[in-house]
């Protein structure tokens, strides 16, 4: 009896210690970043372009590039992902082919992002002749996050209760009424949560963007999707790889900006999920 009790306490302490360790690491990293990045983090950091002088270096080009990428990626990935999920859940015949397709999509979510970069380079940059533009970058990111969006949207659609579908069919609704006017709105909070989490993965992606030709040093803001671009993680990478110590501090400021955008995204996702719980369907 006593020994079992001991094991219980021990196990609890091990679990506690491990979770403390993870949190502590993150905290140390954050404190370190803040101390390094604080010096250059002011309003002009957001409004100035990259520069050879650390004091004047800013993240404007990267920030705008990332915002452009997010907007384009979201506009492409949302309808594609939701339509695929709706098809797989509501229309596709429940056969071996569908299951094969679903397994493949789930696997695609785990493919290293650099592979998507190579795919983007071959198809968008070369084959479609989109060059090193925001189009190429955002289409590559769309491919990258599509599997994640599809899988999470499928989950959201599956969790819409059958009783709602039956209620609508019993009123003489056609399948498209039910899917578009009942199932989709009821699944929307769950779908949006998935989209936002997928986008926050896209924000941090560097490798595929390097491959499709995003630039590291840029002194203008892209004005159309066919312009050259850079993005926050690329800009940070560019600074961090320079020899001067000051630029490492600038890189830390960039990371803080990136982290705050990520935090905002995740808070939005939490908020949407919270609303979902308030109106169970």
């Amino acid at each position: 009896m006593k020994r079992r009790w001991c094991k219980d306490v021990l196990f609890r302490w091990v679990c506690g210690a491990v979770s403390m360790f993870a949190t502590a690491l993150l905290l140390v990293l954050l404190v370190h970043l803040c101390r390094q990045g604080w010096e250059y983090l002011d309003s002009s950091f957001l409004t100035q372009f990259a520069s050879r002088r650390p004091a004047q270096a800013g993240i404007k080009a990267g920030l705008w590039g990332t915002l452009w990428l997010l907007a384009l990626t979201a506009t492409m990935a949302f309808p594609l992902g939701v339509a695929t999920a709706l098809y797989l859940e509501e229309y596709a015949p429940q056969g071996r082919l569908t299951r094969l397709l679903e397994v493949n999509i789930a696997n695609l979510a785990g493919v290293p992002s650099i592979i998507y970069g190579l795919l983007g380079l071959a198809i968008f940059v070369r084959l479609l002749g989109l060059e090193r533009s925001l189009w190429s970058g955002s289409m590559t990111l769309t491919l990258l996050i599509l599997p994640v969006i599809i899988v999470s949207a499928q989950g959201a659609i599956r969790s819409v209760p059958r009783s709602l579908r039956e209620a609508s069919y019993a009123l003489g609704a056609q399948p498209w009424h039910v899917n578009l006017l009942v199932v989709f709105p009821a699944a929307l909070p769950g779908i949006l949560t998935g989209v936002i989490l997928a986008l926050s993965r896209a924000i941090g992606e560097t490798a595929p963007l390097v491959i499709v030709g995003a630039v590291g040093y840029m002194r203008f803001v892209p004005t159309s999707p066919s312009d050259d671009f850079t993005a926050l993680p690329l800009q940070i990478y560019d600074w961090a790889s320079r020899p001067q110590v000051e630029f490492h501090q600038v890189a830390a400021s960039g990371i803080l900006v990136l982290l705050s955008i990520l935090l905002m995204f995740n808070l939005t996702a939490v908020w949407i999920r919270h609303r979902l719980q308030r109106y169970p369907s």
Binding site: P161, S163, L164, E166, A167, S168, Y169, A170, L171, G172, A173, Q174, V182, P185, A186, Y279, P280, S281
Partner: peptide, 19 residues
Amino acid sequence: PPTVRKRIGMVFQKPNPFP
């Protein structure tokens, strides 16, 4: 079938109003 269901309505075991 949808035309059939327009003329023959249904009420289910558990109340299932739309959200």
